[in-house]
Simulated assay, not measured.
Amino acid sequence: MTDPAPSIRIRLHCGEEIAMGPGKADLLDAIRQHGSISAAGRALGMSYRRTWMLVDVMNRCWDEPLVQTAAGGSHGGGARVTDRGRQVLAHYRALQQAVRDAARGEDWTALRGLMREQPRPGQRKDGNPPE
């Protein structure tokens, strides 16, 4: 068996919304770096609409907004990650690291040893479940 990299994604839910996940964490990092939601989206290959939707969800799911925006104008707009956003991001990144560390341990080794390299073929050739 090959040695697959762990593929564990941490998603924190707030009701039906994903309050924080790998993509939102990357978006926060990009906003910190670029100072703009649109520039962050471009850097990540996301549409302007998608980046705004993700920021909106994050801002609605936490006790305080994670991103603060400034209206455009002659001096331009922009965005910044708030103190709460930096705090949430730091805790989320620490949690990701803890999971990566755990994935080097005996439980991951045991699961990896029990997992097939490829799934078995489906039981029916038409792709439908058995009746």
Rank of each mutant, 00 (worst) to 15 (best):
G15T: 08
A79C: 09
D107V: 08
R84M: 15
G77A: 00
L28G: 12
V57F: 12
R80K: 12
A102I: 05
G72C: 04
H34I: 04
K125L: 07
D3M: 04
H13Y: 14
G23D: 13
G122F: 02
R9H: 15
M46R: 13
S38L: 13
I8N: 00
G85S: 11
M20S: 00
R120P: 10
G105F: 08
R93A: 12
A40K: 05
G105N: 01
G45S: 07
K24H: 12
L44K: 04
D56I: 00
A98H: 08
V55C: 12
Q123A: 03
L12N: 02
T109C: 03
H75E: 05
A98V: 09
M53H: 07
D126C: 12
L95W: 04
M115Y: 08
H34Y: 14
E64T: 05
R49I: 07
T51N: 04
D101M: 01
G122A: 13
R11N: 14
H91R: 11
V55S: 10
H13V: 02
Y92N: 11
A70K: 10
C61H: 08
K24M: 15
P119W: 00
N59D: 15
A98T: 12
R42M: 14
M46L: 14
D101H: 05
Q123N: 01
P130T: 03
G21H: 08
P130D: 06
Q68K: 06
Q97F: 09
G35Q: 13
H13R: 03
T2C: 06
R80G: 02
P129T: 05
I18Q: 11
H34S: 10
G76R: 00
R80Q: 14
A5R: 15
D126W: 11
T2E: 07
L114F: 15
G15Y: 08
T51R: 02
Q123L: 03
Q97V: 15
C61R: 01
S38G: 02
Q97H: 10
E106S: 13
L89S: 08
P119N: 06
E64H: 13
R60K: 03
P6L: 10
G21Q: 09
H34A: 03
N128L: 15
A71Y: 02
A79H: 07
W62H: 12
